[in-house]
Amino acid sequence: MTQTVLLPIDLAVPATWDKSLPRALNLADGGTLHVITVIPNFGMSMVGSYFDEGFIKQALHDVGAQLGDWIRANIPDAQDVHPHVTHGRIYDEIIRAASKLDVDVIVLGAPRTDLAEYLLGPNAARVVRHAPQSVFVVRG
Results as ranks from 00 to 15, higher is better:
Ala28Asn: 07
Ala28Asp: 10
Ala28Arg: 05
Ala28Glu: 09
Gly30Leu: 05
Gly31Lys: 00
Gly31His: 05
Gly31Asn: 01
Gly31Ile: 12
Thr32Ile: 13
Thr32Asn: 00
Leu33Ala: 10
Val35Pro: 06
Val35Arg: 09
Ile36Ala: 13
Ile36Met: 11
Ile36Gly: 03
Thr37Met: 05
Thr37Phe: 08
Thr37Trp: 12
Thr37Glu: 11
Val38Tyr: 07
Val38Phe: 01
Ile39Asp: 00
Pro40His: 12
Pro40Ile: 15
Asn41Ala: 08
Phe42Ser: 04
Gly43Cys: 09
Gly43Pro: 11
Gly43Arg: 14
Met44Val: 12
Met44His: 13
Ser45Thr: 15
Ser45Ile: 10
Ser45Ala: 14
Ser45Leu: 13
Ser45Asp: 14
Met46Glu: 15
Met46Pro: 00
Met46Trp: 06
Gly48Lys: 00
Ser49Arg: 05
Tyr50Phe: 14
Tyr50Leu: 09
Tyr50Cys: 03
Tyr50Lys: 01
Tyr50Ile: 10
Phe51Thr: 09
Phe51Gly: 07
Asp52Lys: 02
Asp52Glu: 14
Asp52Tyr: 00
Asp52Leu: 03
Glu53Met: 03
Gly54Phe: 07
Gly54Thr: 09
Gly54His: 10
Gly54Cys: 10
Phe55His: 09
Phe55Pro: 04
Phe55Ala: 12
Phe55Gly: 03
Ile56Tyr: 01
Lys57Arg: 06
Lys57Ala: 15
Lys57Ile: 03
Gln58His: 10
Gln58Leu: 06
Gln58Asp: 14
Gln58Met: 08
Gln58Thr: 15
Gln58Trp: 02
Ala59Lys: 15
Ala59Tyr: 01
Ala59Asn: 12
Ala59Pro: 02
Ala59Ile: 03
Leu60Cys: 04
Leu60Glu: 14
His61Cys: 03
His61Phe: 00
His61Asp: 11
His61Val: 09
Asp62Pro: 04
Asp62Leu: 02
Val63Trp: 00
Val63Gly: 01
Gly64Met: 07
Gly64Ala: 08
Ala65Lys: 13
Ala65Gln: 11
Ala65Pro: 01
Gln66Trp: 00
Gln66Ile: 01
Gly68Phe: 00
Gly68Thr: 12
Asp69Phe: 02
Asp69Arg: 11
Asp69Glu: 13
Trp70Asp: 08
Trp70Tyr: 06
Trp70Arg: 06
Ile71Trp: 05
Ile71Gln: 10
Ile71Phe: 03
Ala73Asn: 12
Ala73Phe: 03
Asn74Gly: 05
Asn74Met: 06
Ile75Glu: 08
Ile75Val: 15
Ile75Lys: 09
Pro76Glu: 05
Pro76Val: 07
Pro76Gln: 04
Asp77Met: 09
Asp77Trp: 04
Ala78Cys: 04
Ala78Lys: 08
Gln79Glu: 13
Gln79Val: 14
Gln79Cys: 12
Gln79Asn: 06
Gln79Trp: 00
Val81Ser: 09
Val81His: 00
Val81Cys: 13
His82Gly: 03
His82Tyr: 03
His82Trp: 05
Pro83Met: 03
Pro83Asp: 08
Pro83Ala: 03
His84Gly: 05
His84Ala: 09
His84Tyr: 08
Val85Pro: 08
Val85Asp: 08
Thr86Gly: 10
His87Cys: 01
His87Tyr: 14
His87Val: 08
His87Phe: 13
Gly88Gln: 09
Gly88Trp: 07
Gly88Asn: 10
Gly88Tyr: 10
Arg89Pro: 01
Ile90Tyr: 01
Tyr91Trp: 15
Asp92Arg: 11
Asp92Glu: 15
Glu93His: 02
Glu93Thr: 04
Glu93Met: 15
Ile94Cys: 08
Ile94Trp: 10
Ile94His: 07
